[in-house]
Design a protein around this nucleic acid. Structure first.
Lengths: 333, 333
DNA sequence: GCCCATAACTTAATCGATTAAGTTAAAATT
DNA sequence: AATTTTAACTTAATCGATTAAGTTATGGGC
């Protein structure tokens, strides 16, 4: 269908090698006459020749493609990460193929397998909670990869994370410093290590300020159907602890549902309670200008992930790198 | 590095052909002895053989990969579209490679070229305004592709759109039916055909109800730096037409900035004005529960795009299909 | 005992590129 | 004039798979 080196060679009555050399810019080096070089270049341009990169990859053993595996590309956070990764990867000559695991580790395993079969040069993965197995086998094959957003403390891998614990620690401390006494922590998916870290930050802030941990102030909702779950949990919370006066949300989507609840119940989110959230969303500055935020450095995560991965791809060796980026604190009263 | 057909063949002392047939499930058909079949299958399983799909694609001429080109994968709307497309494509045996054009037609042309070089079987493109050239050349090469979200009326291509004009027509009519007299239309990027269609819907609703078009009520902001642009435009609007009582936003991100303005200026968005927006965003139901919406059928767009594209890929022929999906109206008072 | 069918493979070409290792004819050197 | 160099190519192997077209050896039929 599309024209190949071979067909150019045939048309010009020269060998494939000659054409290959000229188009690769090695014409002079390989002592191809100027006349021939011009003939080849002109023909290639006129016919709009584009090399088949699959063939090239087959030989070179590198596809210049990175596989990105995230729970869902439809998620605002991962979509923005994907954008940064794409731009950074492109500047290094790589394109991106992505797969959404839909938070299903079997699906994830299949996608990783597929990407490897398509000969991606490396993977950037935001793993699901049960994908330790798959990650271990990547380690065994010493296939280049970097984890982002989530990790496995017991595995020695590359990863790029943010300071989950520190972020929630600072947010909680800020709420307490504002004079709040009963600060609730709202979280989900607690078998994810990073969620545990966020909770640790909350707990540490409490104990550092001699506040007692109150289990009634701990709200955990299941990931699926979290909207309704949260309403139920909040109804109970406001019944059990009517004078709750602060909220630290572990994720932006929980915070959005929390805000929906506060608005629906006419709860004064300036006077009666203070708010904080790990990461944010554009609408928060309108909905709750006073909410304090620990913003994840999306650019940094993406760029570091690509950096680490490409280093790993290029010099097969290299030790694993564990990067923890600081969050950007935005305090409000 | 990773083991190949060849190495399996060598290890078992059979020919590559035999191994290939057995692994392709053609063992019986090709009369390979059961003993050999078992030996091959067992070895392949133990060694975790995975075929090199690049090599397979080189032969078959199909990569089972679709290229997705959108202005930005970081954009909520395109991210969600991408998710749907990925799921649908996967169910048809395709994976997705994506590129963000960053609304730059030169960049877009480069990305399309790259994707074609990587031998994607087809493209799904949300084109930028100046990419007509590139699209035309795809037509000339009869390369399979589908446009989404945007299109070129003068080109005969596949496309999947939503009813832009009808959506804005109904939204505007609704605002007028609520008794609003001075409804503003807020838009951007007017050289995009679909933005023109949305404006047409607005104008048609006005003329159908014998309302006069008032150029003071037409707000157009540049795409870049639209946040500040919108503030300036609104300042002017409220000065020139203090009794403006309705707003129809052409996009969700304009509406969000509009809401930011209303909140900042304590403008009563229930009594003093009525709101409408083409498409929506999760926070709108909290920020402006009364805002009427014309929701784009994201699932439908993605699924139809994949359907049309795959049909196009599989039977090289086929006429172009032009699909316009209805929007889902959510009226509020 | 001869011929043919069939089981059970193997050889070699192919996809589209790259590249090490030739080849040939003309020019330069001795 | 004989030998070496060099310019300007070409041949053929290779990447990892697929597949059309052979090739054996064995068994059955007559």
């Amino acid at each position: 269908m599309s024209l190949s080196l071979k067909s150019i060679a045939k048309a010009l009555n020269v060998s494939r090698t000659t054409v290959s050399w000229v188009l690769a810019g090695k014409g002079d080096e390989k002592k191809i006459s100027l006349a021939t070089q011009e003939r080849v270049l002109e023909y290639a341009k006129k016919a709009n020749y584009q090399p088949n990169l699959l063939a090239k990859s087959l030989i070179s053993g590198e596809s210049k493609t990175i596989g990105l595996v995230v729970p869902s590309i439809g998620d605002e956070f991962y979509a923005q990460i994907a954008r940064v990764i794409e731009l950074k990867a492109e500047s290094c000559g790589f394109t991106l193929t992505f797969c959404s695991s839909e938070a299903d580790s079997e699906r994830e395993a299949k996608m990783i397998q597929m990407l490897k079969s398509k000969m991606v040069d490396g993977l950037i993965i935001a793993p699901t909670k049960h994908s330790k197995r798959e990650i271990e086998s990547l380690i065994n094959e010493s296939f280049p990869f970097v984890l982002i957003d989530r990790f496995f403390p017991e595995l020695d891998t590359n990863y790029v994370l943010v300071d989950n614990e520190g972020g929630c620690y600072q947010l909680t401390k800020h709420l307490l410093a504002l004079g709040r006494k009963k600060v609730a922590f709202v979280t989900t998916d607690t078998n994810l290590v990073v969620m545990g870290l966020r909770y640790n930050g909350y707990k540490k802030a409490l104990s550092d300020t001699k506040n007692r941990l109150n289990s009634n102030l701990y709200i955990e909702v299941k990931r699926s159907d979290y909207e309704k779950e949260l309403i139920k949990a909040f109804d109970r919370l406001f019944h059990e602890v009517p004078d709750v006066d602060g909220f630290c949300f572990a994720t932006h989507y929980l915070a959005l549902e929390g805000l929906r609840y506060f608005y629906a119940h006419h709860i004064n989110i300036t006077k009666r309670i203070s708010l904080a959230c790990f990461h944010g969303s554009p609408s928060f500055s309108i909905l709750a200008p006073n909410m304090s935020l620990a913003i994840q450095p999306i650019e940094g995560i993406g760029e570091e992930a690509v950096n680490v991965l490409i280093q790993n791809i290029e010099k097969k060796k290299t030790e694993n790198r564990q990067i923890v980026l600081p969050v950007k604190m935005c305090f409000h009263s």
